[in-house]
Design a protein around this nucleic acid. Structure first.
Length: 348
DNA sequence: AACGCGGGGCA
DNA sequence: TGCCCAGCGTT
């Protein structure tokens, strides 16, 4: 006796959808390509609840694709007003005109022709073909990405091309030949109502029995967040000139750029430059490298190599420079210093 | 205040 | 190819 065959991803999802899915969205009835297209473009940027009134208003004013093509741009933009991403409204308008000019006033049923229209990429083309015509095409919007990364336990930011490729393959694998329209709506509904970004409702989710993220308690880590931009690393040598009274020479930074206006240490590009710079500031004869450290800014990292010049004797000339001053510990406490510089000086 | 959203456009 | 952008909603 053979075991009962395990339900496929699509079958389980569709079973849930029939009971709990959304069946009364305005673009579901009547479900034509123009309405699906409009809803998809609006939904690229905005959630269902917000989209509905905009969709209703838009479709009432411009009920068919030729109506949109003939409308003037101001009308289209006015109907879009409040949704943001106005370039999409312009693409929508331009695509409608192209459909009138090239495709008999209808959206093409051919994937390549559809994806060639402005504002329609792979996912939107798939959604239109699946939802309006029941054709087996996958979609990969934010909902599907979230469901796939969690269900399969895919680590790595979905924006990375390798991850995205993997997600497309999984989205395609799970898309059934039968009920393609319902499946497309079902997976979006799952992502929008249960498999939400924070605090997903796994207890109610029909897919959790086979979901890797649920099994391994990873729903909080998946999908992986966008990695911080690879920040460039810059280097600097900070000069710690200390005189016989243990005072340190501080230099006020310029008004532009990082740490603007703060008191900091004189800097040099490298250790060779550091000697020259130090000799301009004081009479010195000995240097000792201190422990280097890296300071992280939002947009770059700064590797700091501090160089200590002890027993420095100030040149008379620098006394006249208001941007330079010899400070003892008490002075330093009262001045605005960048945190890493303060910390460096305290460690001396 | 930071992040995410699909697709287009640019290096 | 990878990256930046748009404008608003969500967290």
């Amino acid at each position: 006796m053979s075991k009962p065959k395990k339900l496929s991803f699509a079958d389980r999802l569709l079973g849930w959808f029939d009971v709990h899915g959304r069946h009364d969205l305005p673009w579901q009835s009547p479900r034509d390509a123009y309405r699906v297209w409009l809803s998809e473009v609006m939904l690229q940027q905005t959630q269902v609840a917000t989209v509905i009134p905009y969709f209703d208003r838009f479709i009432k004013a411009l009920p068919t694709l030729p109506d949109l093509a003939e409308a003037d741009e101001d009308t289209v933009l006015a109907l879009w007003s409040g949704l943001g991403y106005y370039r999409r409204a312009r693409f929508l308008h331009a695509a409608a005109k192209q459909c009138v000019a090239l495709h008999g006033g209808e959206l093409p049923r051919d994937y390549d022709a559809l994806a060639a229209l402005p504002g329609i990429g792979r996912s939107t083309a798939g959604a239109i073909l699946a939802q309006a015509h029941g054709l087996r095409f996958p979609i990969l919007d934010g909902n599907v990405k979230r469901v796939m990364t969690r269900f399969h336990g895919i680590h790595g930011h979905p924006g990375q091309s390798a991850i995205e490729k993997q997600l497309w393959a999984l989205a395609d694998k799970h898309t059934p030949a039968a009920r393609a329209a319902d499946y497309t709506q079902a997976i979006m509904d799952l992502g929008a109502t249960l498999c939400v970004r924070s605090r997903p409702a796994c207890e109610e989710c029909p897919m959790s029995v086979d979901c890797v993220a649920f099994r391994d308690d990873l729903t909080g880590q998946l999908p992986s967040t966008k990695p911080g931009k690879v920040t460039p690393t810059r280097q600097t040598v900070m000069l710690v000139l200390r005189d016989a009274q243990q005072r340190v020479l501080l230099e006020r930074r310029g008004e532009q750029g990082v740490w603007a206006g703060l008191w900091s240490l004189p800097e040099a590009l490298d250790s060779e430059d550091a000697w020259k710079a130090a000799e301009r500031l004081a009479r010195i004869d000995d240097a000792r490298a201190l422990a280097p450290f890296t300071h992280v800014f939002s947009h770059y990292k700064l590797k700091v190599e501090p160089l200590l010049f002890d027993e420095a004797t100030a040149h008379a000339a620098i006394a006249d420079n208001p941007r330079l001053r010899w400070c003892d510990t008490g002075d330093i406490a009262a001045l605005g210093l960048p945190a890493p510089v303060r910390s460096l000086l305290q460690s001396l």
